[in-house]
Amino acid sequence: MIDVIINVTLLAFLAITAVAIIRMSNLFAIIMLFSMFSFLSAGVFIVMDAIDVAFTEAAVGTGVSTVLMLATLALTKDQKEKQPVAHRPWLPLTVVIVTGSALVYGTLDIPPFGDPDAPAQTHVAPEYLERSIPETGVQNVVTSVLASYRGFDTLGEVTVVFTAGIAVMLLIGGRRRKEELEQPQGDPDDA
């Protein structure tokens, strides 16, 4: 029972933070709230027994992503978001409400939270849990699935991370050229 209460409270906090992020226009506050959002979601992951995921989310979402977003803010020097004049709120709101209700309609058929007989629980998961110790000798099933059973997948993910690093380095790594610094607005010709 207690974990249900913790779960409900944390999710309510998450919803409040998301609404606050939508309503705010100070970008610094938005980024700090996003950091809180990540930390709360790491708490939710712990309540749902996903320790490895919570670990990563706490280090990545709360630490590295916040630092990178703050660095972007320092580089762009825009502290406040200008309220959009041309956009009317009702069109995106309609799109969001229609999509959201379709998704909620879809959840009515989903097995309830924590159901041990749900289809997701009965196919490959018991196999992994049974075979991890005899086949690999690794107690942490997440590690054995990540590195051994789904090794190709992880190789692909590592390559994606590597490629993203190269792309960031090509885009903004290295010093800016002198003419760019003198004319930060940029020529209309090269825009």
Partner: peptide
């Protein structure tokens, strides 16, 4: 690499 790229850009 990503962090150094972002931080070095303002130099």
């Amino acid at each position: 690499i990503i962090y150094f790229s972002f931080a070095g850009r303002s130099r």
